[in-house]
């Protein structure tokens, strides 16, 4: 059972309260009508599918209902951190230093 920290509720809770919402930091296109098919393909479908430290979105569905971001290692399933939506990507090197 994953334990996930909701940055809004400031509580660490079981994964069944949360739903996964895919890779994080994929920005919506600013000018959709000017996008090429290739660019749409990248935005809609292509994913990094990282084996290692993965920036991803979660939603605290059965709690506050809000989306937030997380960094989780996809090999160990261990969360490095969670942070509020809209916040910039945390520095991975600093996070890993903090884990040691």
């Amino acid at each position: 059972m994953l334990l996930i920290h909701c940055p809004y509720c400031d509580e660490t809770l079981p994964e069944v309260e949360f739903t996964y919402a895919g890779e994080a930091h994929i920005a919506r296109p600013e000018n959709p009508s000017e996008m090429s098919d290739d660019a749409w393909q990248q935005f809609l479908f292509m994913r990094d599918n990282v084996k290692g430290d993965h920036f991803e979105r979660w939603r605290h569905l059965h709690g506050c209902g809000r989306f937030f971001n997380a960094v989780r290692n996809t090999v160990t399933d261990k969360f490095l951190t969670t942070y509020k939506a809209g916040a910039p990507r945390p520095d991975l090197a600093a996070l890993k230093e903090g884990q040691k």
Binding site: T19, Y20, T74
Partner: peptide, 13 residues
């Protein structure tokens, strides 16, 4: 399981 993972374990829920 709902999340990307390479753990070959999966979650108990």
């Amino acid at each position: 399981d709902q999340y990307v993972s390479y753990s070959q374990r999966g979650g108990l829920p």
